[in-house]
Simulated assay, not measured.
Amino acid sequence: MTTAVLLAAGAGTRLRSAAESKPLCVVGGKPLIDHAIERMATAGIRRVIVTTGYRAEAIEAHLAARDWPVTVETALTADWRQPNGVSALAAAPLLAGEATLLAMCDHLVDPALYARMADAGAGDGLNLGIDRRLGHPWVDPDDVTFVATEGDRIIAIGKGMAPHDCYDTGVFAVGVPFFAALETLAEPSITDAVRLLAAGGGAGVVDCSDIDWIDVDDPKALAAAETWLAGS
């Protein structure tokens, strides 16, 4: 798997005090979107499709001004106010049926996580990188998506969900069935598409509990990310 879809369409209101555009929020001396693309390149990804929406012109101008180590393309989301599945669907025509990594621009992760998910592939529909370190200080329990598993299969997923046995890291390997599931939804969200695939046994997990990642979604998480990068 050498292609990735990077979702960068949302407004990022919880991080607005640090940056008008979350993908362009500087962490450790560079914007979040730069960290994601460069780390994907380190993991062996050769093509990144960035889906834009809120402040699309600023993000696209930033991308155009850089000489990236991978091929970078953009896909404009029809309405960034809609659930994140709409953003994922914006990239589908550029994939032409190819399986892909799917990741969130505001998730700062070790490149090893991207590499592990690319190696795992999409399986019967999708695989999700999960973290079983419940209670990790970097994870916001009010914002993280919880996952319940049975073996290597997802049986339930959602925010504020109990019981659960792991966290969603925000990094997926997805294939055609995932996009087909999104297409059936009136308000396409990634979580709802995962639920549809999970009902048929097509949503797997890959344990990434040994790899660090952080969802940089608010000032507290931004400070934790700065500390992490400074230490590494």
Rank of each mutant, 00 (worst) to 15 (best):
A162P: 04
A8P: 07
V171E: 06
I130A: 04
F179V: 00
V205I: 15
S209M: 11
A221R: 14
S209N: 14
V27N: 00
V70A: 14
L95W: 02
D119S: 15
R47D: 14
T149C: 11
A103R: 01
I154L: 02
A198D: 13
C166Q: 07
T100C: 01
D207V: 11
F146D: 10
D119H: 15
L15F: 10
L6S: 09
T13W: 05
P31N: 02
A198F: 13
A19Y: 01
L185A: 09
S21N: 13
C208L: 11
P111Y: 06
A96N: 07
M161D: 03
W213D: 13
T184P: 08
L7N: 04
L89R: 00
V5F: 00
L32T: 01
V26D: 00
V48A: 14
Y54T: 12
E187I: 01
P219L: 11
M161L: 15
L76C: 10
D168F: 13
V5T: 08
I59A: 00
M104R: 02
P219W: 13
V109G: 05
D124H: 14
D168S: 05
D67Q: 11
K220Y: 05
D106Y: 08
I130P: 05
A120I: 13
P219K: 07
G10E: 13
D131P: 06
H35D: 06
G175D: 06
A199T: 09
A224L: 15
T52I: 08
A186Y: 02
W228S: 07
A92F: 07
T149G: 14
E60H: 12
W68H: 05
D142Q: 13
A75Y: 03
D212G: 11
G151V: 11
P23S: 05
E73W: 02
T2C: 02
L7Q: 10
M117P: 09
L102C: 06
I214H: 06
A221C: 09
V27W: 00
T74K: 05
K30R: 15
A92T: 00
D142T: 11
A92Y: 05
A18R: 14
R133A: 13
W138Q: 11
F179Y: 15
A156P: 04
E150A: 09
A58K: 13
G125K: 01
T149Y: 12
G44S: 10
R153D: 10
R55F: 09
D165C: 12
G44K: 00
R55T: 03
V139W: 04
T145G: 05
A56T: 06
G201V: 07
E98N: 04
